[in-house]
Design a protein around this nucleic acid. Structure first.
Lengths: 137, 137
DNA sequence: GTATCTGCAAAACATTTGCAATTCT
DNA sequence: AGAATTGCAAATGTTTTGCAGATAC
């Protein structure tokens, strides 16, 4: 992790009212550099060697805090796992049912007016697709 | 439950290779008449008075069987709950974060070609939106 | 020195599994 | 009787909570 990046990450956290502790910086850095939409467990396993005292509780606490502060979003593609994404712009997610990877695709559901919801106050748009990716076909 | 409906339900189950036991008929009937996208718990609580020996295991078994046989689909709008829908056509779901109800909206993501996924084999399209419904505003 | 943050252990839930009892044909 | 279905109890897995110790300003 280079220092320029570290400073940029600290700034994002501070600008959103989150104190930049080492654990928080590392978790946010992991999400921004690895665009793999990791689960809590994947984040924990990846960072544990470096942050030897890290606990899953802290990963949960931190991710919930980030979501609350709208620094990241949680995404659902499978019922038994919440995944996290540091890209908070509207886009879709594609999960390959063979290799289990989750890919982004550019698609903004908010751009498609939905008549039935015209009198609702919308806070979140989500689109996801499942299938088999080109590498697995 | 009228008998004409019962026969129609039996036919759907049989046509899809599912033996129409009382529990299965009642669960499928509940899903088709109550278009409320219930959770396992809601289905169990609603049917338990009528089917006094019903167990949650049977509700789980039955719903998993229905999904496997593509008689119903499971939908995700919230991380801690799987909901079920007897409408298997492509459409979207809107969850009101105040009253917690889940509404349908007509929207077929498959009609919107996504260039990045043109070389993938797609099996499922999902779109969901969160916000506050007109009744709660 | 007081607030906050971290992390262990336990609790809370949802879902699955093993297996015995029941039901259906 | 034989095969499938049901349902209890226990196991599994994920997320949350309570709280004590560590850290930071």
């Amino acid at each position: 992790m280079n220092l320029i990046n570290a400073d940029a990450i600290k700034k994002v956290l501070q600008d959103n009212g989150v104190k930049p502790s080492l654990q928080r910086i590392k978790i946010y850095e992991f999400l921004t550099t690895q665009k793999s939409h990791p689960t809590v467990d994947e984040i924990f396993v990846s960072l544990a060697p470096e942050l030897m005292t890290l606990s899953k509780t802290t990963v949960y606490n931190t991710l919930n805090l980030f979501v609350e502060k709208k620094i990241i979003t949680s995404i659902l593609v499978e019922e038994n796992e919440i995944r996290y994404d540091s890209d908070i712009t509207n886009h879709g997610h594609f999960k390959c049912i063979k290799c289990k990877k989750v890919y982004d695709f550019s698609y903004d559901l908010s751009k498609h007016a939905i008549a039935e919801l015209s009198d609702c106050a919308i806070t979140e748009y989500h689109a996801y697709i499942k299938g088999i990716c080109n590498k697995c076909l």
